[in-house]
């Protein structure tokens, strides 16, 4: 086979390969399933208590929710750049993009903690009403995933910094990236569902 045809064939084969470790995709599917059940439980509970959900939804800080969406989307974009960098054998650049992504996660965490603190100060708990039960449990469950994603990215960044990844060996970077994109994908559904739709 001519070299050009061979490299073209290799590129096609790479394009068809699942990014990262296959195990993380089974984990991602399981996570999506759990979040999906949570979202539908919220939506159908709202259908039974429309007035209550619509009333208390107005107490949420939509601007904070939108900023958090922008932050997570930007953080996800940083991770895409980190993957592209390591595929070019630029471990230094990969590390910087991953640190930027972790920074985005940190902004999300600070804003969310502020939101939780405000609700706690107002005496709002899981047992206040059905809306807050869903709002607090859904957003806290997602919040824990953001923290876990940040830890994963931090491990990947540390290994990239030590030269543990290169253009031919970067499954770990793609695995961490896939998990972080899942966290982003879930928030993209959660934000309009809980903060906007009524």
């Amino acid at each position: 086979m001519p070299p050009a045809a061979m490299s073209s064939g290799t590129a096609k084969a790479q394009a068809r390969t699942l990014p990262g470790d296959m195990a993380i995709w089974f984990f991602i599917l399981a996570e999506l399933l759990v979040f999906g059940v949570f979202f539908l439980a919220y939506a159908f509970a709202r259908a039974r208590h429309v007035a209550l959900f619509d009333h208390y939804q107005q107490t949420l800080d939509r601007t904070s929710g939108a900023i958090n969406t922008l932050v997570l989307i930007t953080s996800s974009w940083c991770v895409v750049n980190a993957v592209a960098a390591i595929r070019r054998d630029r471990a230094d650049l990969c590390t910087r993009w991953l640190l930027a992504a972790i920074g985005g996660g940190a902004v999300f965490v600070v804003l969310k903690l502020h939101e939780f603190a405000e609700k706690a100060a107002a005496g709002i708990t899981l047992s206040t009403n059905t809306f807050y039960m869903f709002y607090l449990s859904l957003t806290f469950f997602h919040f824990m995933h953001v923290l876990m994603g940040m830890v994963i990215l931090a491990f990947v960044a540390a290994k990239a910094r030590r030269g543990g990844y290169d253009a031919g060996n970067h499954t770990g970077v793609e695995t961490g990236a896939s998990y972080w994109h899942m966290v982003d994908l879930v928030w993209i559904v959660l934000f309009p569902l809980v903060y906007v739709m009524h």
């Binding site: 394009a15 068809r16 699942l18 990014p19 539908l40 793609e174």
Partner: peptide
């Protein structure tokens, strides 16, 4: 684009997209 599932061999893209469509339709 971000997950890079477009053109990936196997059912992965359809599983994740299917999750998205199912959840949104049921919402």
């Amino acid at each position: 684009v971000f997950m890079g599932l477009r053109g990936v061999r196997g059912p992965w893209r359809w599983l994740v997209s299917g999750w998205l469509v199912t959840v949104l339709v049921l919402i």
